[in-house]
Amino acid sequence: MRDRNDGPPGQTPPWYARVATSAGRPAVLGATLIMSMPGEYHVAKYAGWSDPWAYGMPFSLSAYAGIAAVVAATRPKKARGRVSATLGAGFAIVLALAAQVVAHLVETGHMDHNQPWLIAVTSMVPPAVLAHLLHLAATPTPVVAASASVDTSEETPVVERLEQSKPQPAPAAVPPMPPTAPQLPPAAPPAPAPIVYQDPRCATVRPLYDTGTRPSTSAMRAALVNAGYGKVSDSTIRGVIRAEIEQHEPHLAHYPQTLPLASGQRP
């Protein structure tokens, strides 16, 4: 929000004006405090304070006026302590003015400093200042919730109001989200690696187990003969060929026999 002291909208104060404003305020404040201290010091001396206690009068009045002014300016309207701080700030200004006037009247011989009312009023200043500062300190400061400031039409520059009155472009349309890709079924487990038999005749006998039964010795012999291996002994069929097949696949040994054994025939 633009400061009303900054001039018309779009116009920046010259550099010397900005320097005078920023550096002049503390300079003026320091000069006025220094110029006010002798008068307040002499008034304290007239009231009967000796050094170094008389030097406390300028600091008391200056600090009191500053604290009361800050409290009066920072507290919101109708808040507790604001009226009292405003009155205290005015009272501090009146005391500072009165101290300067009395000190200069006495110094120029227009007034006698040895007057009971002057001594009494001056003696009451430190206790009154202390009491009022304690009152301001004991008064709770209201907590105002932070809110975004809204500029009125009078405070908003003309250029900003024109820009605010322009039609605002519509918000860009948000493209729709792509549909979720369908979840694929879990991949089938890899096929087991083929069995490599040490005895190649095992490959001829292994298909006989696909019927779900354990082939007999005669059935295995017939398969070997048909495959061109010739006549193979029973011990080789059972102890070598069938043993190697069932060693690679132990569950085949639990298959039922193909046919009931004939008399004198071994499985």
Rank of each mutant, 00 (worst) to 15 (best):
A128I: 10
N114W: 06
S149Y: 12
H251Q: 14
T12L: 15
R4Y: 04
L118Q: 09
Q164M: 03
Q100E: 05
N114K: 11
I245W: 07
M1H: 12
A222I: 00
N114F: 03
A191G: 04
W15K: 08
Q265D: 12
T152G: 15
R201V: 01
P171S: 10
P9M: 01
S147H: 12
P186V: 11
V121W: 11
S36C: 02
A79Q: 02
A262H: 10
H135G: 04
M57N: 07
A103W: 08
V232F: 00
A138Q: 08
L224Y: 11
P182A: 15
A131L: 14
P171C: 01
R18F: 03
P190A: 15
G48R: 05
A89D: 08
P186I: 07
P200S: 14
G239P: 00
G264Q: 11
N114T: 09
P175F: 10
M1A: 08
K166G: 02
R18A: 14
Y255I: 01
V71A: 05
E246G: 01
R201T: 03
S263Y: 13
Y46W: 14
V83N: 10
L130H: 12
T32Y: 13
A219C: 04
Y55Q: 13
A103C: 04
R2A: 06
G212N: 11
E244C: 00
A222H: 06
L133I: 07
V196D: 02
M111E: 06
M37S: 14
E107L: 05
A188Y: 11
P142D: 07
E107S: 13
R214A: 00
Q168T: 14
P267N: 14
V70N: 09
L95S: 13
S263N: 10
T108E: 03
V94S: 15
L136Y: 10
S235L: 02
L87V: 09
P200V: 09
A54Q: 13
S84F: 04
H42W: 15
T236G: 00
M57T: 03
T122L: 03
A17I: 05
A146F: 01
P250T: 01
H132M: 05
T122E: 08
A219L: 10
T156M: 12
V94A: 15
A44D: 02
R2T: 08
S263W: 05
V158E: 12
A191H: 10
A96W: 11
V232T: 04
P13T: 11
T204E: 00
V174W: 07
P260L: 11
I34R: 15
S149H: 12
M220E: 06
S22W: 11
D151W: 03
V232N: 00
V106D: 09
S263P: 08
P142S: 08
H254I: 00
S216I: 05
T152M: 02
V28D: 10
V106A: 14
P167T: 05
H135Y: 12
A31S: 11
Y41E: 08
T156N: 06
L95K: 12
V158F: 06
